[in-house]
Design a binder for these strands. Structure first.
Lengths: 203, 203
DNA sequence: GATAGAATGGACCCGCTAGTCCAGAACGGG
DNA sequence: CCCGTTCTGGACTAGCGGGTCCATTCTATC
């Protein structure tokens, strides 16, 4: 990983990763060829193998890391500040509008369903992403419990897990059907249920 | 589609589809080669193109239809009989145990994330599957509203959409992380919220 | 400004895979 | 039993894509 790279080399390496990521987002990982990446980034075959000696697999792993970082970053600062109902709503709107914009070019889904299946390394990246994402949601729910807006008896971690699943599924269904309704439903129903939990009779 | 096929031909065609489906479930669609299907099903190259003249794409579409049929069939009869809380629980357990058994070899996910992306035809198969699945869930919720077990003010279709998204995401996360917790959480939280909806103060 | 190591260009190779083709076997209706 | 159709076997092709290799140019440091 930490080979000696001059600034120029660093820039080239970065250019390759970003170009590959873009190419993969547009075309899918199994359609993307090294030659397409090479052409898009204005590099040569030997550069690809110079910066990623283990070849395509190593490049894909780097792309996975790159995309994973973006997924959560794209939801900030809202995701890290789920401290009131308007804040929850703002985050919800942010998520929905982001997925509306990007349509079929979905870094998250590419990462989870295409990159994440190939190697244990990429799988670990996905797992880590899910872990962090859920931690943010759990933290938001706990905060709402702290200020009495959510029933203290709610299992924050379980609800966060369910919400995360709903988001993942909503995105997946959007990519299959072209409709955002399921993503919106998952978010709205989850938030509604949290909001109306206070004073709800426990079973 | 309805070419003249003798019983023998029908059987061969069927054998090819099932073999291809099994191969794809085990190895993934982009790894599965026609030669692997050929070897597994004890057929020859010319047979593959005899029964699927348009080649691999046509075969994959047939596999998509085959797998889509199985996904819902595997949840029956429970999915079609969501008429009491124990019945809901039975369906929930059925789903969980099925996905626990099959582990990484998941027809649903192969269909949605690998087959469904290639052609408009396969995409339509996936959309249709989601549509039917959600209709079954909606129908179950409406029935519970009819017998007074779920608040009549609940938007059955929206809650069903959210639940479906949760299932899809739960399965997806299971395939990424190896854990069933998110699928279970999505199912349990959704059912819990339905159960405790009666008498809940509406926002 | 010399020199070692990094960065780049691009031709080449090899294996793999979808798809073609033709010859021949099996089948079914008359 | 005959003949057209369906079914099967397997060799062959064409092109693509990952990976190798070596020659050349650039860059940093002393």
């Amino acid at each position: 990983m930490d080979r000696k790279l001059t600034p120029k080399g660093e820039a080239a390496r970065r250019r390759i990763i970003e170009g590959a990521a873009a190419e993969i987002r547009e075309s899918g990982v199994h359609v993307t060829t090294l030659d397409a990446v090479r052409a898009r980034t204005g590099t040569s075959k030997s550069q690809l193998f110079h910066y990623f000696p283990k070849g395509k697999e190593e490049l894909l792993l780097a792309v996975a890391r790159y995309e994973a970082d973006r997924v959560l970053a794209d939801q900030q600062p809202q995701l890290g500040d789920l401290t009131s109902w308007p804040a929850w709503q703002a985050w919800r709107d942010r998520v929905v509008s982001r997925y509306r914009e990007q349509g079929q070019r979905c870094p998250l889904n590419v990462l989870v369903t295409q990159l994440g299946r190939n190697t244990p390394g990429a799988q670990a990246v996905v797992t880590e992403l899910m872990w962090q994402w859920q931690a943010e949601l759990t933290s938001g729910i706990r905060h709402m419990q702290g200020v009495g807006e959510v029933d203290a008896a709610v299992d924050a971690d379980r609800v966060a897990a369910a919400l995360l699943a709903g988001i993942q599924g909503g995105v997946l269904i959007m990519l299959s059907t072209g409709r955002l309704t399921h993503l919106e439903a998952a978010l709205d129903v989850a938030i509604d249920n949290l909001r109306s939990s206070t004073g709800r009779p426990l079973h």
